[in-house]
């Protein structure tokens, strides 16, 4: 259960309250499983374990990391990988926009916000929006940084674990670890797709992606996103207009 820190607590105490709440939240398990799978994936496509750790710290977005690893690993061009990563990351922008008003007041220095902005990701955003309003404003940034550090640490450690497990296990078990990534992403994407437009985009992506790849269409991931996403959006607008 989440315990609100003492209003007089120091920055460090609030930070560690954040770390603790990260380790007891549902996202701890989600990140653990996801990054075990990611470690196996990185191993499979020939990246080093330190490269993966650095990508978790710098990129800090599981979908983008999977896209980089799988597309570069299968020989996609750098431009295609960069465009696909960027298209997958647009969702971060509205998250930052909705998070900032919770963190700042008139006295907040810009540089104190840089870290929370970089830490912004689905797990941290969902938990911050839920918990920050319960805290006094002065403690929110420290708590948010602690929470995110807890999540990022979990991801980095699990990534190493998955990498070395995949390296040492027989094919069947290593294959099972590799399967965690598509399986957990499929289900969490379905769960996040509550609106018709998102569900349609999901189905179009699942069909269009393999069809384009099987026909050796260049930039298949990028085109699947643009075409599938825009068609889904168009259908959504059409339905709104006909209502």
């Amino acid at each position: 259960m989440f315990k609100i820190p003492d209003p007089q607590a120091t920055g460090a105490a609030v930070f560690f309250a954040g770390v603790k709440s990260a380790c007891t939240s549902v996202f701890f398990l989600v990140l653990f499983g996801t990054y075990i799978g990611m470690g196996a994936l990185a191993h499979d496509f020939g990246f080093s374990s330190w490269w993966l750790a650095l990508s978790s710290v710098l990129v800090w977005a599981a979908p983008a990391q999977v896209i980089i690893i799988s597309s570069l690993g299968t020989g996609a061009s750098l431009i295609e990988a960069a465009v696909a990563v960027s298209l997958s990351a647009i969702r971060l922008m509205p998250m930052v926009v909705t998070l900032l008003p919770l963190l700042r007041d008139e006295k907040t220095r810009t540089r104190d916000l840089l870290l929370p902005v970089h830490f912004t990701s689905v797990s941290m955003w969902v938990e911050s929006l839920r918990m920050l309003p319960l805290l006094p404003r002065g403690q929110r940034i420290a708590f948010c940084n602690g929470l995110s550090t807890g999540y990022m640490g979990t991801a980095v450690v699990s990534g190493f674990a998955g990498f070395y497990l995949a390296a040492g296990l027989p094919d069947l078990y290593a294959g099972t670890l590799l399967f965690i990534t598509p399986m957990s992403f499929l289900i969490s994407t379905v769960r996040n797709a509550r609106l018709m437009v998102d569900r349609l985009a999901l189905v179009l992506g699942l069909v269009l992606g393999p069809v384009l790849a099987a026909n050796h269409v260049g930039l298949d991931i990028m085109w699947t996103g643009i075409v599938g996403g825009t068609v889904a959006y168009g259908v959504h607008r059409l339905r709104e207009a006909m209502r």
Partner: peptide
């Protein structure tokens, strides 16, 4: 709304490719 649809389709394509055109141990 549009960007979320594009991101969802991209992710779906990556998922489908990882399952259908697996490499390595999988």
């Amino acid at each position: 709304v549009w960007s979320r649809a594009v991101a969802t389709a991209i992710l779906a394509a990556v998922i489908a490719k990882l399952i259908l055109f697996s490499s390595g141990a999988l």
